[in-house]
Design a binder for these strands. Structure first.
Lengths: 170, 170
DNA sequence: ATCAATGCAAATAATTTGCACGTCC
DNA sequence: GGACGTGCAAATTATTTGCATTGAT
């Protein structure tokens, strides 16, 4: 289970050594925390997790460290409509997600077909490096909620009509 | 050329009438301004354009109006790493863009193959409604700049070496 | 005349920056 | 011991909100 954590730790260590940067406890704590989520996480959630594990880190360090991880491609940043989310990338190499526009729920998509299509796309004076696909829609549980809500409202309408008939009789 | 502007104006008019909303000068001024850009624009740029055309609008109204246009699908919002950008969508129905990570330059991509791939993708308990693809990389002019910079630096190195040789002789 | 929509300014949220201090090499 | 990285707090930026005023219907 911690295989991935060990690997990314090695990647970070190697990078820091090669660039004469310091192997601080904070950097490894943040990396470990980031790789404890199995989907998108916010700065807030990351901060909270670090605090819970009794390793609080300043906000500035969080931002600095996440920026470092982004250049190392250990983390990506998604600026969604309901806020900025981060994601550990070393495991899931898919850059394709479905996102519910109601509740914000995110799921990873099988990206092979998309990746092929991107490979077959012509770029205009451009050297491509990565891509990100977001499919927006409504997840099944939000759909169910909406249906229930609609039913409730139409029942209310029927009830109101009946009341009106009764009232009119008076 | 103004065909599109006329069409979107009609769409807005119709929507406002059907929903008993007011046809304010501001709303049409913002719509017209938004459709004067032929690519992404920022709130700042939109505000500036409106000001130049002697129709200044408050920031709150700008945000409100753009939100309205988004629900009307007349405008989309892209939250990129270098800030929030908006885009008039009635003309270009492509949701695929290439984005230079150095200068931020954006170009539209031919989206047919991508759209097909999305159509052939399985979604997990999800009703899809739209999608957005961002291909990140480096545009040719930024590549050229980097090459020039690299050349400059290596020439400097050679020059330094020569100087060192001369200095060592002293 | 009414009430939705605007403008303004203040509030909030998100991120960056400058500087003093601590700690990794 | 020295410089890099961190923490803290202030600064900056982006967006939202509340309220008084204006203007479309």
């Amino acid at each position: 289970m911690d295989d991935v954590k060990v690997e990314v730790k090695q990647i970070l260590t190697q990078y820091l050594e090669q660039n004469n940067m310091r192997k601080t406890v904070e950097r490894f704590a943040v990396l470990n925390a980031a790789y404890s989520f199995d989907t998108f996480f916010t700065i807030e959630e990351l901060n909270e997790l670090l605090g819970r594990n009794s390793f609080p880190v300043s906000r500035a360090t969080l931002y600095n460290t996440l920026k470092l991880f982004q250049t190392l491609q250990l983390v990506v940043c998604h600026r969604l409509n309901d806020g900025t989310k981060y994601e550990a990338t070393y495991t899931h190499r898919s850059n394709c997600h479905q996102i519910c526009t109601i509740c914000g729920k995110v799921s990873e998509l099988d990206s092979r077909k998309i990746a092929d299509a991107v490979d077959n796309t012509r770029f205009k004076r451009f050297r491509r490096e990565s891509f990100s696909l977001y499919v927006y829609g409504i997840c099944s549980s939000c759909q169910a909620k909406m249906t229930r809500e609609r039913n409730r409202k139409s029942k209310e309408k029927v009830a109101n009509k009946k009341t009106n008939i009764i009232n009119n009789r008076k």
